[in-house]
Simulated assay, not measured.
Amino acid sequence: MKDAHFYDHVFEVARQVPAGRVTSYGAIARFLGVGNWSRKVGHAMGMLDGVKPPVPYQRVVNSQGLLTGGTDGIERRKELLAAEGVTVIGNKVQNFKEVFWDPSQELNY
């Protein structure tokens, strides 16, 4: 996917993650056919300023269920996830396997 609109594709997948669920950078990359681009997905998630419609960035975590990014960003993500019923202790999503949402299983694009 050497597409000028890669970020748009990432954002669209992230928008599909239901409230109360999380996915990973790698799961989005695999769904988009670029399984080794999880870092690029992470980079895209850091480029959301002004993106419309909004992207629920808090629902995208690393493959271990860890929230990544700056301290202020992590605290905000914890608050947003808690409001959706997702438990985060430290920087890790609890019951990660149960709340994990895999776009490859859930979306038919």
Results as ranks from 00 to 15, higher is better:
residue 1 M to N: 07
residue 2 K to V: 11
residue 2 K to I: 14
residue 2 K to A: 13
residue 4 A to E: 15
residue 4 A to H: 11
residue 5 H to Q: 13
residue 6 F to R: 06
residue 7 Y to D: 14
residue 7 Y to W: 13
residue 8 D to I: 00
residue 11 F to K: 03
residue 12 E to L: 11
residue 12 E to D: 15
residue 13 V to S: 08
residue 13 V to A: 01
residue 13 V to R: 09
residue 13 V to K: 04
residue 14 A to P: 02
residue 15 R to F: 04
residue 16 Q to A: 15
residue 16 Q to C: 14
residue 17 V to L: 10
residue 18 P to E: 08
residue 18 P to G: 04
residue 18 P to V: 01
residue 18 P to M: 03
residue 19 A to K: 15
residue 20 G to K: 09
residue 21 R to H: 14
residue 21 R to S: 10
residue 22 V to W: 14
residue 22 V to L: 10
residue 22 V to Q: 07
residue 23 T to A: 10
residue 23 T to D: 04
residue 24 S to H: 01
residue 25 Y to E: 11
residue 25 Y to T: 01
residue 25 Y to A: 05
residue 27 A to R: 15
residue 27 A to E: 12
residue 27 A to V: 01
residue 29 A to Y: 05
residue 29 A to C: 09
residue 29 A to P: 06
residue 30 R to G: 07
residue 30 R to S: 11
residue 30 R to E: 13
residue 31 F to L: 00
residue 31 F to I: 05
residue 32 L to N: 07
residue 32 L to A: 03
residue 32 L to I: 11
residue 33 G to V: 05
residue 34 V to T: 13
residue 34 V to D: 03
residue 35 G to W: 11
residue 38 S to W: 08
residue 38 S to C: 03
residue 39 R to P: 00
residue 39 R to V: 08
residue 39 R to M: 09
residue 40 K to R: 13
residue 40 K to Y: 10
residue 42 G to T: 06
residue 43 H to T: 13
residue 46 G to M: 07
residue 47 M to S: 13
residue 49 D to Y: 11
residue 49 D to N: 12
residue 49 D to I: 05
residue 50 G to W: 02
residue 50 G to L: 01
residue 50 G to D: 01
residue 51 V to I: 14
residue 51 V to T: 10
residue 53 P to G: 10
residue 54 P to I: 05
residue 54 P to K: 13
residue 54 P to Y: 06
residue 55 V to W: 05
residue 55 V to N: 01
residue 55 V to F: 04
residue 56 P to H: 13
residue 57 Y to I: 06
residue 57 Y to M: 06
residue 58 Q to H: 15
residue 58 Q to E: 15
residue 58 Q to G: 09
residue 58 Q to L: 06
residue 59 R to G: 06
residue 60 V to M: 11
residue 63 S to D: 15
residue 63 S to M: 11
residue 64 Q to H: 02
residue 64 Q to D: 10
residue 64 Q to L: 08
residue 65 G to E: 01
residue 65 G to N: 01
residue 66 L to M: 10
residue 68 T to D: 03
residue 69 G to A: 02
residue 70 G to I: 02
residue 71 T to C: 05
residue 71 T to K: 13
residue 72 D to M: 07
residue 72 D to C: 03
residue 72 D to N: 14
residue 73 G to V: 03
residue 74 I to P: 05
residue 75 E to S: 13
residue 77 R to N: 14
residue 77 R to I: 00
residue 77 R to Y: 08
residue 78 K to Q: 10
residue 78 K to W: 05
residue 78 K to R: 15
residue 79 E to M: 10
residue 80 L to G: 00
residue 80 L to M: 12
residue 81 L to F: 07
residue 82 A to T: 07
residue 83 A to W: 12
residue 83 A to H: 12
residue 83 A to V: 04
residue 84 E to N: 03
residue 85 G to W: 06
residue 86 V to T: 04
residue 91 N to L: 06
residue 91 N to Q: 12
residue 92 K to G: 04
residue 94 Q to G: 04
residue 94 Q to A: 09
residue 94 Q to S: 06
residue 95 N to W: 08
residue 95 N to F: 09
residue 95 N to E: 13
residue 96 F to A: 07
residue 97 K to M: 06
residue 97 K to A: 13
residue 98 E to K: 14
residue 98 E to N: 12
residue 98 E to R: 15
residue 98 E to V: 00
residue 98 E to I: 02
residue 100 F to Q: 07
residue 101 W to L: 09
residue 101 W to K: 08
residue 102 D to H: 07
residue 103 P to K: 12
residue 104 S to P: 00
residue 105 Q to M: 12
residue 105 Q to D: 15
residue 109 Y to R: 14
residue 109 Y to T: 08
